[in-house]
Nucleic acid binder design. Structure first.
Lengths: 333, 333
DNA sequence: CTGTTAGCGCGTTCAT
DNA sequence: ATGAACGCGCTAACAG
């Protein structure tokens, strides 16, 4: 390879190969209407010069960047990490790049973030559990193509989501089946989309089981909120507690252990998501396995369809109940 | 705001405002050499049309994309997640975007990945613990500006890293101080950069303490490798085991519990990294806290300096030993 | 202070 | 089958 101080442009290749710009372009893009011998010479020169078309210039003329944006509320959350990972790898398999935008839970900047990232990409995958339904609906038409994760079906974009309601039903049935009649639900932050689905499932369970008493406690979505709410939980007299997610459950487990409360003998605890660490807690956590990476992969599939003008497939994945050792029979009286 | 089927271009703004392209450009870029009244009119029109300069077109003419690439070996690894998060937020504060490239541990594609992502960005932050020193040194000059994380100091790029050697020394001194004389070291995959630093620290410890016996066991970097190597660890008769990272330690802890081995009474276990979950294991893990998010933030600081033609600051962050309950005195006898 | 013009690097008609 | 010329949308140098 010939050394070059600055990177080779298409002009250089054309000059060295003794052909026109157009011919080089055609060869580089695999256009078959070029004489085989000539094409070979051009390819040789290109290889020698280490030439590759400038992606930015191509983006300008082609109107596509070969990149999609992913907007995530919190890169520290294992579920979003899983989604990002699944999406990133699936996109990479199709030679697409991923621009990440961590909104850091700032709901107010989210809308703007989606808009700006969309402009430098070909589409945006939106993970915004707390954005209002109205804001979301208003935003989507202006950023198509878009794919939405874990929200209700949308007019202007396909959605890929986990069925949090069904999963919650599985959890509550599991708990009820173990004889628990008074249970606490740690509801996470207000306004989350999946939160509504869970609450509805709980409502239905209450209706189904006249003997079931569910008390809701507001908590957050991280370790600390689970740890902080432990005493309130104990005060309710519940024999089982349904945490908003695995993180909250882990925080709770930790404080419970400090208090000398035995799980599941004294109280049962369930998580949600089945993050990789859920099986390493003490005791291992009963939880609903949300297939985060697959959500990401499906989101990419929908985005790819959109980019190719195909019909995108919305998807609803059903989490699977994973019974481990943090749940057990209700203590007899 | 006036509705527009397709997005407004600078031409539209110029036409509606009755000025030239150049004037619009100047106004949008805050160039003060424009009559205030005129500028106001242009701004009004731009706002009305919802105009914002096309980032791709700007990138082409300005020669910068306002984006940096981050190459990560595994998005599923909590340490890399922390680095990515710290970097992403720091970059966002400076109005820079982040393109992620998950090499999925494919060392052979890593070099190519760095090159391609570099071309659509203004620089690349490289996290490639297993790339050979030779490949790394050969690659860097072709992708400047670049910042390297967790590798030895480089000729062609600033490095930001954690001092794994010192951290390992702290760990081994802690263990030795507890009376342990025979310890096992789970060395992770071969060829990792930080692995060498740890091994050197162990070597030095061996030289310092004539009574210290360290046996090295090859393992991986995930839960499963820790779980799988448990019996081999027990076979060594070691009273303490130093895991390559927290994940390995957690896997080990899990299998040890199944075997009825008590930690730390029968055997002490240490991790490395202090991932968020390390304090929720049973028992909570003694480990060395690697400030992943800060590594990312420092990496961005170095990159920003490079982008502004300032002198970049390499950084070496010293992990802090976090003593929790997975380590205790060596069993007597 | 403002407008006209020339690229940035490439893909793509339109002739030949 | 090949080349010349135009344009993607914008910024910057150069006039006026």
């Amino acid at each position: 390879m010939t050394k070059s101080s600055s990177r080779a442009r298409i002009t250089d290749v054309a000059r060295v190969a003794g052909v026109s710009l157009a011919t080089v372009s055609r060869v580089m893009n695999g256009n078959p209407t070029v004489d085989a011998t000539l094409a070979a010479r051009v390819r040789a020169v290109a290889a020698d010069l280490g030439y590759t078309a400038d992606p930015v210039a191509r983006s300008l003329v082609l109107g596509r960047t070969q990149t999609v944006a992913v907007v995530i509320p919190d890169l520290a959350n294992p579920t979003f990490q899983g989604i990002l990972r699944g999406l990133s790898r699936a996109a990479a398999d199709d030679d697409y790049h991923v621009l990440i935008a961590d909104s850091a839970e700032q709901v107010d900047v989210e809308v703007g973030l989606v808009g700006t990232t969309r402009r430098r990409t070909d589409g945006v995958v939106l993970c915004a559990p707390r954005m209002s339904a109205a804001d979301l609906a208003a935003l989507l038409p202006s950023v198509t193509p878009a794919v939405v994760i874990n929200r209700l079906p949308q007019e202007a974009a396909p959605t890929v989501s986990a069925d949090y309601g069904t999963a919650m039903t599985q959890i509550i049935e599991h708990i009820h089946g173990l004889g628990h009649r008074r249970v606490a639900y740690l509801s996470g932050v207000a306004g989350s989309a999946s939160g509504s689905a869970r609450r509805a499932a709980l409502e239905a369970a209450r209706a189904r089981h006249g003997d079931l008493d569910i008390v809701e406690l507001a908590a957050g979505v991280g370790f600390d909120s689970g740890a902080a709410v432990a005493d309130d939980v104990l005060a309710t007299g519940a024999t089982a507690v349904l945490a908003f997610n695995d993180l909250v459950a882990m925080g709770l487990l930790s404080t419970l252990a400090e208090r000398g409360i035995r799980v599941p003998d004294d109280i049962s605890v369930t998580g949600f998501d089945d993050i990789p660490f859920a099986r390493y807690t003490t005791p291992p956590l009963t939880t609903a396995a949300v297939p985060a990476a697959e959500l990401g992969q499906r989101a990419w599939a929908a985005m790819r369809a959109l980019l190719h003008d195909h019909e995108p497939a919305s998807a609803v994945l059903t989490p699977e109940l994973v019974v481990r050792e943090s749940t057990g029979p209700a203590p007899s009286h």
